[in-house]
Simulated scan of single mutants.
Amino acid sequence: MEVRINGKPETVADKSTVGSVLAARELDPALVSVEHNGNILERSQLDSAVLSEGDELEILFFMGGGQA
């Protein structure tokens, strides 16, 4: 099925969860924040949030930085 991840169409397996998408991308859930159809998910929800055709995910990466 097709979903949008960070604004780009991508194909994922039927009944994929947000957690399985992160795992397939080798992303550590502790290092990202995920918005699913406009709602920010708690980390405890990642493996139970099942994707449907046309869903939208925004995966936000934590970045360090500042002045040296």
Rank of each mutant, 00 (worst) to 15 (best):
M1Q: 11
R4Q: 13
I5R: 00
N6P: 02
N6S: 13
G7L: 02
G7K: 01
K8C: 08
P9N: 10
E10H: 05
T11Y: 04
T11M: 09
T11D: 01
V12D: 01
A13C: 03
D14K: 08
S16P: 00
S16V: 00
T17R: 01
V18H: 00
G19R: 00
G19P: 03
G19Y: 13
G19V: 09
V21N: 02
L22T: 02
L22I: 05
A23Y: 01
A23F: 04
A24S: 14
R25V: 03
E26P: 01
L27F: 05
L27G: 03
L27V: 01
L27Y: 11
L27D: 01
L27Q: 10
D28Q: 08
P29N: 13
P29T: 07
A30L: 15
A30D: 15
L31F: 06
S33W: 05
S33D: 11
S33T: 15
S33E: 15
V34W: 04
V34I: 15
V34F: 07
E35T: 06
E35R: 01
H36W: 14
H36R: 08
H36T: 13
N37I: 08
N37E: 08
G38Y: 12
N39T: 14
I40G: 02
L41T: 03
E42T: 06
E42H: 10
E42V: 05
R43H: 08
R43Q: 15
R43I: 02
S44H: 04
Q45R: 13
L46K: 10
L46I: 12
D47V: 08
D47C: 02
D47T: 05
S48Y: 06
A49N: 00
A49Y: 05
V50S: 11
V50K: 10
V50R: 09
L51G: 00
L51T: 04
S52H: 12
S52T: 10
S52I: 00
E53P: 07
G54N: 13
D55E: 08
D55M: 07
E56R: 15
E56D: 08
E56S: 10
E58M: 10
I59W: 10
I59D: 06
M63I: 15
G64T: 14
G65I: 12
G65F: 06
G65L: 05
G66P: 12
G66F: 11
G66D: 11
Q67M: 14
Q67V: 12
A68I: 11
A68D: 10
